[in-house]
């Protein structure tokens, strides 16, 4: 049974392009071009995975996740964007997206990412891994509670670094002599920390990152 996918993007040309690229492997059940129509279409069709643009009319991808996610946890979101603003990328992950890839991703890679997200794993592009390392870098504030969520383990850091270096999950597994499943577990755990960490530096970092 092929996966059911919704494409949410305000550029019709881009939607057509993505549809053409993934059409053989997944079933595109809905397309939408703004927040309201997206929320309506997603709730109506309940796709397995929503490919979600970060910026679009009505409040952006973040707003779509905010409205749909709490009610339909089974619908997974994969952010697909041209925006590389760390603040937005981290924001959409913290809202509940299971991954982030840039729009210049190739068709097969995108299908692979859709499958991964649908099966409950997380998809980290090199850029997202870089952002994560940046966000969790630096000194940990002692005053912050919940320390487990506020730091990456050595292994998770290792996995993030390899992904940032352009390694696919399979290559990461080979490099670290662990199974792909274990790599997936590490990545999911990083995703969880990213979503749940109360570390206020995380948001502050995103806000101030470009104020050099």
């Amino acid at each position: 049974m092929s996966l059911r996918v919704a494409i949410v993007d305000d550029h019709a040309m881009f939607r057509t392009g993505v549809r053409a690229e993934v059409d053989h492997d997944v079933e595109v059940v809905a397309e939408a071009e703004d927040v309201d129509s997206a929320v309506e279409a997603i709730i109506r069709t309940l796709p397995d995975v929503v490919l979600l643009d970060v910026h679009m009319p009505g409040g952006g991808g973040l707003e779509v996740i905010r409205r749909v996610h709490p009610r339909h946890l089974e619908v997974k979101f994969l952010a697909l964007s041209v925006s590389d603003a760390a603040e937005d990328v981290i924001g959409i992950i913290r809202a509940g997206a299971r991954g982030y890839v840039t729009k210049n991703i190739s068709g097969p890679e995108l299908v692979d990412a859709i499958r991964r997200v649908a099966s409950g794993d997380a998809v980290f592009s090199p850029r997202l891994a870089g952002f994560v390392l940046d966000a969790f870098a630096g000194t940990i504030e002692v005053a912050q509670v919940d320390e487990d969520l506020d730091r990456l383990t050595e292994r998770e850091r290792e996995v993030m670094r390899l992904i940032a270096r352009g390694y696919a999950y399979k290559e990461v597994a080979k490099e670290l002599f662990i199974s792909v499943k274990t790599v997936e577990t590490h990545v999911s755990s990083v995703l969880r920390k990213l979503q749940l960490s109360s570390r206020h530096e995380l948001t502050r970092w995103a806000n101030e990152r470009r104020l050099i």
């Binding site: 305000d10 970060v54 910026h55 679009m56 009319p57 009505g58 409040g59 952006g60 991808g61 973040l62 707003e63 905010r66 925006s83 603003a85 603040e87 937005d88 924001g91 913290r94 948001t203 995103a206 470009r210 104020l211």
Partner: peptide, 18 residues
């Protein structure tokens, strides 16, 4: 102080401020 692309997206309502 957002870069122009983000500021514009915020003004148009294409993104929600966090």
């Amino acid at each position: 102080d957002l870069p122009p692309g983000l500021a514009a997206a915020t003004r148009r309502g294409d993104r929600s401020a966090g």
